[in-house]
Design a protein around this nucleic acid. Structure first.
Lengths: 200, 200
DNA sequence: CCAACAAGTAACCATACAGTTACTTTAGTC
DNA sequence: GACTAAAGTAACTGTATGGTTACTTGTTGG
């Protein structure tokens, strides 16, 4: 196949997203990323610099997504566990995305769906907590509820609860972010703006 | 010092709690556990069998605690990430503890503090989600709220929100579990019942 | 068309780390 | 008090893994 640096970089990055999402930083293996990307291991160092740099690139690319999917929640968890809340990657952009959630809460307050006297950011945080919880802690759902977070009964009950809840809805926002196909390869079509090129 | 198998086992276990809570399974280091416990590495294999077995012992000991402290939440997170929701360690006992939370929700419903038409287990789950979120995802709190989850303004606002919230309180339950002193060494006084002695 | 530089490869290296070997010391029991 | 089994130690091993070396191949601007 014709060589193409951007394409290779993208393949590595998307393989890395899967790998870090699945295993976290300590558990992730450079060799697995290379194998999954169908690229030589050396190229990871060529394009990114090292394991840490790949991880940062993964965070920078993924953490600025709005909707809470399973893979993203896992990255959030590893982010919290391994990096804490200092030096948050992509802080400015993420804060911008969060503003949408706060906005949604504020709007709901306007419509009388939510108590007007509360800080909308607080309501947005609470809503996020409820959105994320079943994805983040399926075992606790199972312990408390008796059935699985992925089971139909729970999902339906939870959704209904969230709808009636005195809290703001998740803003449904078009997702312009890159999507992965079944092999975990990012489609080349609409690459997001290439921030921080760590490589050579 | 006089040799004492139980004591050594306990020191190893408590060192392991810190280690796994800090680094997860993949990131945890047997050598660090040994150093922290002030015990020879070989003794870990002597008393437990292997890394996996130590991890299981840690989960079995810690995950059945009621109150959500920082260390426990980290273990919950690693549990979710590395083990999912199949084959939950200590399921029966944890379910018993969870029943207290559900009970609290039910009581609150009786007092009219909560909508009576909802499943109390669902309300308990929601409450747990809100309790855990700032500990689990401090970076998201920071992104949405602007200030840190550990900051006084946030903690006060969040507590107030939880108190007014249309949801059940956390059951405050006497904690009979072993407590750790500053060195992370479990006090010998009231060891919990010794479940599953994996060692020789 | 041809340097020069980037993209790509395979084999290698140093290290860290889970687990083991072979041994010594101590506590308890008869 | 001597025997035994458990408790404890130090030094070692095999392997997985992050990172590197030394090299080849393709692309592109002058």
């Amino acid at each position: 196949m014709a060589r193409n640096a951007d394409r290779t970089r993208a393949k590595i990055l998307s393989a890395a997203v899967s790998e870090f999402s699945a295993h976290g930083y300590a558990g992730a293996r450079i060799d697995r990323i290379a194998a999954r990307a169908g690229a030589n291991k050396r190229l990871i160092y060529h394009h990114f610099g090292g394991k840490q740099a790949v991880f940062e690139a993964v965070l920078a690319e993924q953490l600025t997504t709005a909707s809470a999917n399973d893979e993203l929640v896992r990255l959030w968890m590893y982010e919290a566990l391994e990096r804490g809340d200092d030096d948050i990657v992509g802080f400015a952009e993420r804060r911008r995305l969060a503003a949408d959630r706060v906005e949604a809460a504020s709007t709901a307050q306007g419509k009388g769906e939510l108590p007007a006297d509360l800080d909308p950011a607080l309501l947005a945080t609470a809503r996020l907590a409820l959105d994320v919880f079943p994805l983040a802690f399926p075992q606790l759902v199972r312990v408390v509820m008796g059935n699985r977070a992925t089971s139909k009964p729970f999902r339906e009950a939870w959704n209904e609860f969230l709808n009636d809840w005195h809290g703001p809805r998740t803003p449904d926002r078009a997702k312009p972010r890159v999507r992965l196909d079944r092999d975990g390869i990012a489609r080349a079509a609409t690459r997001p703006t290439q921030t921080r090129r760590t490589g050579p």
